[in-house]
Amino acid sequence: MFEVFLSAFITLFVVIDPPGCAPIYAGLTKGATARQARVMAIRATLIAGVILVGFALFGEQLLGALHIELDSFRIAGGLMLFLIALDMVFEKRTQRREERAEKIAATPEVEDVSVFPMAMPMLAGPGAIAAVMLLQNEASGPEGSLVVLGALGAVLAITMAALIAAGPLMRLFGDRVEAVITRLLGVLLAALAAQYVIDGLKGSFGI
């Protein structure tokens, strides 16, 4: 079970990317008080958690209703995660997040960023939804499902802490350290995504 937890934790940590979300959140909440920023960080993480747990618990039924086989979803999810990994390695993901943050910051009437863009699409984006559904479907039995949900809870707790401490963290680490971490996590995610595609192809063709 520890291996299942570790695999789920690493996958979700890389996809949700707390180190990458923290500086974006710091920029979005620059004009907010410390209390306002803290409340929005907690709300964003809780909303993202509800969305991801919903897909983890009911994603398989959704696939069944749409007549999508699990192996097809493994391949599609793996490819999606691989594209995210490429963006992380070449720093395009961070660039897109910053552009989105600038657009939100340039709109004076938008004050609460907890739902958009933080909860969705930054935390509970397509990649995170695909990852949590894949992990839940890979888990064996109720115990495996609980382990995956536990890993998700741990990643979201770290994410919440990173968002709350976003300002001090940015001063401590700086842009260069964040870029190195992002690239390393991107390489790791690419390998995990490739494994999902391989498993899906094996299942589809009975290899």
Rank of each mutant, 00 (worst) to 15 (best):
V89F: 05
V89K: 09
F90L: 12
F90D: 03
E91C: 02
E91W: 05
K92W: 00
K92P: 03
K92Y: 00
K92I: 14
K92N: 11
R93V: 11
R93K: 02
T94D: 01
T94M: 11
T94A: 11
Q95S: 08
Q95W: 00
R96A: 08
R96T: 12
R97A: 07
R97G: 07
E98A: 12
E98F: 00
E98P: 02
E99T: 06
E99Y: 01
A101V: 07
E102R: 03
E102P: 05
E102N: 10
E102G: 04
K103F: 08
I104V: 15
I104F: 11
I104S: 04
I104G: 06
A105F: 00
A106E: 00
T107A: 11
T107W: 01
T107H: 03
T107F: 04
P108N: 02
P108I: 01
P108R: 00
E109G: 01
E109I: 08
E109A: 07
V110N: 02
V110W: 00
V110Y: 00
E111A: 02
E111K: 00
D112S: 06
D112N: 10
V113Q: 02
S114A: 09
V115E: 08
V115P: 01
V115S: 06
V115A: 11
F116Y: 05
F116N: 05
F116E: 04
P117F: 10
P117N: 13
P117L: 10
P117D: 10
M118C: 06
M118R: 05
M118Q: 07
M118N: 01
A119L: 06
A119N: 05
A119G: 02
A119Q: 04
M120F: 10
P121Q: 12
P121K: 11
P121C: 15
L123W: 12
L123N: 05
L123S: 04
A124W: 13
A124V: 09
A124K: 11
A124Q: 09
G125Y: 04
P126E: 08
G127Y: 10
G127D: 12
G127T: 14
A128H: 05
I129Q: 13
I129D: 01
I129V: 15
A130G: 13
A130C: 15
A131I: 13
A131Q: 09
A131E: 12
A131R: 05
V132R: 09
M133I: 15
M133L: 15
L134P: 04
L134W: 01
E138N: 09
E138F: 15
A139K: 02
A139T: 11
A139I: 09
A139E: 07
A139N: 08
P142Y: 09
P142V: 15
P142M: 14
E143I: 09
E143V: 12
E143D: 15
G144Y: 14
S145H: 14
S145C: 13
S145K: 12
